[in-house]
Nucleic acid binder design. Structure first.
Lengths: 137, 137
DNA sequence: GTAATCCCTAGTAAATTGATAGGATTAATG
DNA sequence: CATTAATCCTATCAATTTACTAGGGATTAC
């Protein structure tokens, strides 16, 4: 299941991306428009900022803005920040690999081989989708 | 993340499928061989039996067996029983569809459209993989 | 200097996960 | 028929994760 954190994060990014304005977008604005609890959203946008995806401006008339063009923000990056590893098991994770305690030989593990296929398919979707794609329509 | 329940379930099914014997396979045998807590495994195999994937024989020399040929047991069915919906959000689930509270128009929702792609890709893997595939090698 | 904004740390209730406990039921076997 | 070995069933539980909320600190525009 996709966490609400990820869902809210994606919606917020989409919102900011669609807002074609020079001034940064405020948390309260996004919160109201997308029906996201404000304090929760605050913490999510903070995470995205710390990951380098968003930038922020403090104080009055402050807010958040994209650090790069929407077409250059890949879903692989966004998903890893918000949801964590893309793989369903650590033993097939590219970025967070971990050996299974039980499994003596990964190549002979049926679960391993199945999950590699799922990972590759999911990865290809996220690699080929940018924030620009999400923001269209 | 794949739950341990699903992981254990898949490993157990693979084990049973590889055991080419007429007599049913006992929980304790699988438990030892695959390093799965016995009581936990018991409950998992019970679930698979109730879903019609496994059959069981009670009493001495009892155990579990496959109800169909490995080549006819699709991962879509197994995964739905063990892990639940394949979709990452209810609003793109084929079997467990649910509308989002917030989302006024699904076709315009960026998360919705992205998650449909992920679902379709994952689904194609599970549809094209049977227990026989898992059991080879 | 005041209002509006992000920044940061804590805490917390509810749900889920990954088990464990204990026994009831059923069947094979001597 | 008694014993043993299996599944079946219900209940419980600790740890973790999720989805928030609270409360204030720091910064900036005006």
């Amino acid at each position: 299941m996709l966490s609400k954190k990820t869902k809210y994060g994606l919606k917020a990014l989409t919102y900011i991306s669609r807002t074609k304005s020079d001034s940064p977008v405020q948390v309260s604005t996004i919160s109201k428009s997308e029906q996201i609890p404000q304090k929760f959203l605050e913490s999510i946008l903070l995470t995205l900022r710390k990951a380098g995806i968003l930038g922020s401006k403090k104080g009055k008339h402050g807010g958040y803005y994209l650090r790069h063009e929407p077409s250059e923000i890949k879903m692989t990056d966004v998903m890893r920040v918000l949801e964590g590893p893309i793989a369903m098991v650590p033993c097939v994770s590219l970025n967070y690999y971990e050996k299974c305690d039980d499994c003596p030989d990964e190549n002979k593990c049926s679960v391993h081989r199945l999950m590699i296929q799922v990972r590759d398919n999911t990865l290809s979707v996220f690699r080929n989708t940018t924030l620009e794609d999400l923001s269209n329509e």
